[in-house]
């Protein structure tokens, strides 16, 4: 049987009139990499802060490792590693000193700490930057330092709140691989992000949030099965008469057809040979076309279908 590591029951958090968390429920099991996916302002950080008892909340119960979480649950806090959305390091301390400081809040044995700090430095690949001050680090390296500060004490539960914001793809991949390695070494991970690709790549289970509510939950395959979209077909066509568009839209399994900026985008649900049928129609009307590609549904499609809006603008 899997053990529940985190259980959030009926959590309500208000900021004045704004309901940041609206009867939010969550259960995370031992050994998972749990993704909390949601657009900006959906309440991810608020959830994490409530979970860690940093914020008081209006209603609800939070249990971690089967025990009620309170601001003074030091035995629980000891086992948690936190990587905050805002980088929290001392500008006045070097990379090494920063990691040592945060590790030292948990581990007082000096020899053990030295070893842990070294391991953390190696883990995030900051070996050449031990004596650097945070101000001298690039954005990606700073994020890695932030992560090292959170995981140096080898916690059983690691919470990462958007650790890859403003990080270049190379650094990002390194971070994601690192998280998977931590998980393989036995840590349960909670990962929040508004980048669906990241969540798809590493998370074993995902909850999608919107406006303080959980709108869907499951593995990525389960989530994709929840929606009718199974395939999106895109065809570049210079000119498409409205009559033809109507004919294409009328084909079986195609539930949505759009022609914008010389691109015909078709959403299909189920069925086989959808692409062949579409191309047949174009042939019949002797219409030439450019590139053709099909995509399997993404979590963005899931979010789009459930909430009626895109998870985020094309690229930010």
């Amino acid at each position: 049987m899997e053990n529940t590591v985190v259980r959030i029951k009926d959590l309500v958090k208000r900021y004045g009139d704004l309901i940041a968390l609206d009867h939010f429920e969550l259960e995370i099991k031992d050994g998972e990499i749990f993704g909390l996916l949601g657009p900006n302002g959906s309440g991810k950080t608020t959830t994490i802060n409530c979970l860690l008892s940093l914020l008081s909340f209006d209603k609800g119960d939070i249990e971690i490792f089967g025990k009620k979480m309170t601001p003074v649950s030091y035995d629980i806090k000891k086992e948690i590693g936190v990587i905050m959305q805002n980088v929290a390091v001392f500008d006045e301390l070097t990379v090494y000193e920063n990691i040592d400081y945060f590790c030292g809040l948990y581990i007082s044995d000096k020899a053990k700490r030295r070893q842990y700090v070294e391991e953390a430095i190696k883990f995030v690949g900051l070996e050449d930057f031990r004596k650097f001050y945070p101000k001298k680090l690039s954005g990606g390296l700073l994020r890695r330092l932030n992560i090292a500060c959170g995981i140096a004490h080898k916690p059983k539960l690691i919470i990462l709140d958007e650790p890859t914001v403003a990080v270049d793809p190379q650094s990002r991949n390194r971070i994601l691989e690192g998280i998977q390695e931590l998980n393989r070494n036995g840590a349960t991970v909670i990962y929040t992000s508004h980048y669906m690709e990241e969540v798809e790549q590493i998370c074993t289970r995902i909850a999608i949030m919107d406006k303080g509510r959980k709108v869907a939950e499951g593995t990525k395959d389960e989530l994709k099965r929840m929606i009718k979209n199974t395939e999106t077909i895109t065809i570049e066509i210079l000119e498409l008469p409205g009559k033809v568009l109507g004919e294409v839209a009328g084909l079986p399994h195609i539930y949505d057809a759009d022609y914008v900026d010389g691109r015909l985008v078709l959403s299909c649900s189920g069925g086989k040979h959808n692409l062949t049928r579409v191309l047949d129609v174009l042939h019949k009307h002797e219409l030439g076309f450019g590139r053709v590609y099909t995509e399997l549904p993404t979590l963005n499609d899931v979010f789009l279908e459930i909430t009626g809006k895109a998870l985020r603008d094309k690229e930010d």
Binding site: N49, L54, P71, Y74, V82, M84, V87, A88, E92
Partner: peptide, 19 residues
């Protein structure tokens, strides 16, 4: 001011050092 910066305080409050 440095030791009480909100982000640092939040981060420290997550650890097992007593307030």
């Amino acid at each position: 001011v440095t030791m009480n910066k909100k982000d640092i305080r939040y981060r420290t409050n997550c650890s097992c050092i007593k307030n």
